[in-house]
């Protein structure tokens, strides 16, 4: 959720430029606030529309997320070698380059590892065919 409070500096700048600061645009132009550590804090998604750092998750959410990470790590990965029929990662719309890390879903759709892993943390379905990944995973274990 965005912070709706605008800092006084941002307002001053917009006054000098003579334009109204419109919603959504105020964050991009202003300099970073002082004393903010630039350390990257990984965000987790206990529910699809909630983003929280690990320190603010309930125990139950931590377990759910840990399980999800475990499941994702069970999915096979590989290095794109140019021999596959699928040539584009439909998440970033970028063509696969030889040497890219890719992940294979049970439905045989492939994506950049980085693109699909982020998505699978939010929703455990294949973005192309909507096949639930966990159901497919379980059925492959059974055979």
């Amino acid at each position: 959720m965005g912070n709706c409070l605008k800092s006084p500096t941002a307002d001053d700048i917009s006054l000098l430029r003579g334009n109204d600061s419109q919603d959504g645009s105020e964050a991009s132009s202003e300099p970073p606030p002082p004393y903010q550590e630039s350390v990257h804090v990984p965000m987790y998604h206990p529910a699809p529309n909630i983003s929280r750092p690990a320190s603010q998750l309930t125990e139950e959410e931590q377990i759910r997320i840990a399980k999800r990470i475990g499941l994702i790590q069970h999915l096979p990965t590989g290095i794109y070698d140019g021999s596959k029929k699928i040539r584009e990662c439909v998440i970033c719309m970028g063509e696969f380059c030889v040497g890219d890390a890719v992940r294979y879903l049970p439905c045989m759709h492939i994506y950049h590892k980085e693109c699909i892993d982020d998505w699978l943390m939010r929703s455990f379905t294949c973005p192309s065919c909507m096949e639930p990944v966990d159901a497919a995973l379980l059925s492959t274990y059974e055979t």
Partner: peptide, 22 residues
């Protein structure tokens, strides 16, 4: 609407947001 597991089953996953939408 945000992706994901819709507990109440009002919307099937394919009816909700997917990263392949442009």
């Amino acid at each position: 609407h945000d992706p994901g597991e819709d507990k109440f089953g009002y919307e099937r996953p394919e009816e909700r947001w997917l990263p392949v939408h442009t």
